[in-house]
Computed example of a mutant assay.
Amino acid sequence: MNLSLKTLLKTTQVITVSAAVTLTGTLDALASNDKYKFNLALESGDRDSAQGKSMQQWANLIKEKSDGRMKVNIFYQGELGGQQEMFDQLVKGNIQMMVTWPQTSYDERLAVNYIPYLTLGWDDALKAYGENGWLKNILGPVYADIGLKYFGPYPEGFGGIATKGKYATSYENAQGMKVRSAPVFPLPQTVQAMGFQAVPIDWAEVYTSIQTGVVDGDSSNVIYWDYEYFRDQLNYYVHSRHNFSSYALLMNNDTWNELDAEDQKIIADAAQVVINQQFKDARAEDEKWIKAAQKAGMEYVEPSTAEMQAWVKRVRNDVWPLVEEKLGAELMARIRANASVPK
């Protein structure tokens, strides 16, 4: 049975059924009996993807630790709309939880998550995005300002450029090649600085755009997405590593604030379990899909050290000043102080 988005969201709104407070002699114990049902949406990834399985783990942990009082309905890619539409619904509270690439339409400071060539290797990325990482400490307050609770990142790895028919590992060779970019600042600007023609396209339209020749390929994703969803269309994957692909685990802040401390802890602790596990799994997962893509016939290309250095220099020179205009000099100074140093 097909339900409209409005009806679906309405019927699964957070509902409080009952509340009971157990008091001790010192009033230091607060036990919740409230019952909740939450919507958790994925902008990309089906139930069998690594991301889909991680979100099921989050939902299962919440249900288990709350003795079934809190249940989470998961909606996979495309079931509740496109990226921007779902993010809008998250901010409004119609969707209570989401794993997503943040939309900078609400606050341009979220562009911090997409600064190109910010980290240049796994060790640096983990230090930046980890539980106590310097980048997480920057992102949390920004999310709070737009009404969202930020639990942390869902890292996937370093993105690349996947193309059809030909590939490029330099600014000069990329001229005339059109690649899809997520419509989020500064990803299109990054791809443009690398020499490609950036075409901002929503995820749901990428396959058709490649198939019909609107674009020659996809950009900024780890190889999993290009192999799993477009391998019959794409021949090459250049591991340019220009961005660290990291989603965000989020919750509507009004919904979060309605919960008592016990239930907040259950949800936050469950999120941290998922995040910690993904940090352990992400690198191995990425390497697994690189091998799978190669076995299936996709050519995996690593730019030379000189080619990488040229891209890093050009992109930082062209794009970082644009980012500074959005973030301000003070915040950008913190970022420059912590960014990876090219070798």
Rank of each mutant, 00 (worst) to 15 (best):
E258W: 08
M1I: 14
I335P: 00
A198E: 00
R241C: 02
L139T: 14
M70N: 05
A261P: 11
L110Q: 11
I15V: 13
Q264N: 12
T190I: 03
E287W: 00
Y300V: 03
L30D: 12
Y143I: 08
T212W: 05
V17H: 06
L27D: 15
Q89M: 14
M298F: 03
K10D: 14
S105P: 08
Y167N: 01
Y237C: 00
N39Y: 04
L8I: 14
L61C: 05
S340M: 11
H242G: 02
I223E: 00
L80Q: 13
K178V: 14
K136D: 12
Y36H: 13
D46L: 08
G213T: 09
I74P: 07
N338F: 04
G133F: 08
V191H: 00
G159P: 05
K295A: 12
I146A: 07
L23R: 12
L249K: 13
M70K: 05
I115Y: 02
S18N: 12
L148C: 11
G52V: 11
I115S: 02
Q96C: 09
S340I: 14
V341I: 14
T26Q: 11
G81V: 07
N173C: 03
R336M: 11
F185D: 02
W134L: 06
L40C: 03
D254Y: 05
K326W: 08
M98R: 13
N33Q: 12
Y207H: 11
D281I: 12
E299P: 04
R283V: 15
V206D: 08
E302S: 03
W101C: 09
G147Y: 09
V142A: 07
Q57N: 13
Q83V: 13
W122H: 10
Q57F: 06
D216A: 06
N137T: 15
Y143C: 07
S49F: 08
G68A: 10
L9R: 15
E285S: 09
Q294V: 00
K35D: 03
D263R: 10
V301H: 01
Y227K: 02
N221Q: 06
N137V: 13
G297M: 12
A296E: 15
I223Q: 02
D318H: 04
S54Y: 01
D28P: 13
G217E: 05
K65Y: 11
F38E: 04
N276I: 08
